[in-house]
């Protein structure tokens, strides 16, 4: 295993210390228990937004803490949901009296730990609502699965709900906006290589030089199917089809197209994929009015990418455009 780390067990603590050092003024980092909060938290009267999950997905979630987005992010061990303690501590730290929204990716561990933290916060008279993000169309939401996973669409939920909170929406209204975004975004991903979890020291799955995984998650889980390597355009089509069918997206829809890198994919390749995705949408009469390209929800050094398509309306577009000032997403300020 070749990594730029000191000790596999110190990865999260040291990275969080780096985040603190790199983004002074924007963020503060609390340790014991560990969470990342806006430097100016809590904001009196504003709904607080807390998200979190396993580490290794950076910039998710710490990179999205700041004006117009999250109030706090709670990093767990690599690919492991945080425990309730830091979630509770973060919830308390950002409560400005208007309640706190938990944005939770749909994994059993994340759901259970956030649930416990929410119960504990309620016991301390903090109003907490939770939104479960489950945008991954690779997994069927059925009795036979743990439900759809939350993947790259999470960034869009966090940005748009964050803007709603910033403009002064109530907890119910912010939760409703978050639910709406989750209801209108669909994602699917693929991998060329597997990530290496530091404490495991080996790739999360073995894959040949001429194979790719389709329908992967963001934790190094193998995908739904393994197929021979294909040209980028064919791969894009393979991901887009189920996304578009699922909502379904239709001619005349305005959408935000998000091509997300898994951490080890060069930007030049993401743009090649973006080109094709935009072309396909255009061909179907779906108008791409907002875009995002880059490594936002990653899986350590995994090579691969995901496509997310979010159906926009005027309100969502306005909230997307609203100012945001975080380490990883910034405009208008």
């Amino acid at each position: 295993m070749k990594k730029l780390i000191n000790d596999p067990r110190a990865v999260v603590d040291e990275a969080v210390a780096g985040i603190a050092a790199a983004h002074k003024g924007l963020l503060v980092v609390q340790t014991d228990p560990t969470f990342i909060a806006r430097a100016d938290a809590p904001t009196k009267g504003k709904v607080g937004l807390v998200s979190g999950g396993g580490s290794g997905h950076e910039p998710l979630h710490g990179g999205f803490v700041g004006y117009g987005m999250l109030d706090a992010a709670v990093p767990g061990a690599v690919f492991t949901s945080p425990t309730p303690d830091p979630i509770l501590a973060a919830t308390k730290a950002v409560d400005g009296g208007a309640g706190v929204l938990h944005i939770v990716k749909n994994y059993t561990g994340d759901v259970l730990n956030f649930e416990t933290a929410a119960d504990l916060a309620s016991a301390e008279d903090i109003e907490v609502r939770s939104v479960i993000v489950d945008d991954d169309v690779a997994v069927k939401d059925s009795l036979y699965t743990a439900g759809r996973r939350g993947v790259a669409g999470t960034v869009l939920v966090e940005k748009i709900a964050g803007a709603a909170a910033e403009r002064g929406d109530s907890l119910d209204a912010v939760a409703a906006i978050a639910e709406k975004v989750n209801g209108q975004v669909r994602s699917m991903g693929m991998a060329l290589t597997a990530p290496i979890v530091p404490h495991a020291g080996e790739p999360s799955f073995d894959i040949a030089e001429d194979e790719i995984e389709i329908g992967i998650g963001i934790h190094g889980e193998p995908g739904r199917v393994r197929i021979p390597l294909e040209p980028a355009d064919a791969i894009v089509d393979r991901l887009l089809d189920p996304i578009l069918e699922d909502l379904p997206f239709q001619s005349g829809d305005k959408v935000l197209l998000f091509v997300n890198g898994m951490g080890g994919t060069p930007l030049v390749e993401l743009y090649i994929a973006f080109r094709r995705a935009a072309e396909v949408l255009e061909g179907k009469g779906i108008e791409v009015t907002r875009t995002l390209v880059g490594n936002y929800v990653t899986s350590l050094e995994m090579q691969g990418f995901s496509i997310s398509v979010l159906k926009l309306d005027d309100e969502l577009t306005e909230l997307w455009d609203a100012p945001v000032q975080t380490a990883a997403l910034r405009w208008g300020r």
Binding site: G54, G76, A77, T80, S81, P82, T83, P84, D85, Y107, T108, G109, L112, N113, E115, T116
Partner: peptide, 11 residues
């Protein structure tokens, strides 16, 4: 509960 995290911690 306060040290494991993941699914197995709460379970």
């Amino acid at each position: 509960i306060s040290t494991v995290g993941g699914a197995s911690g709460p379970l």
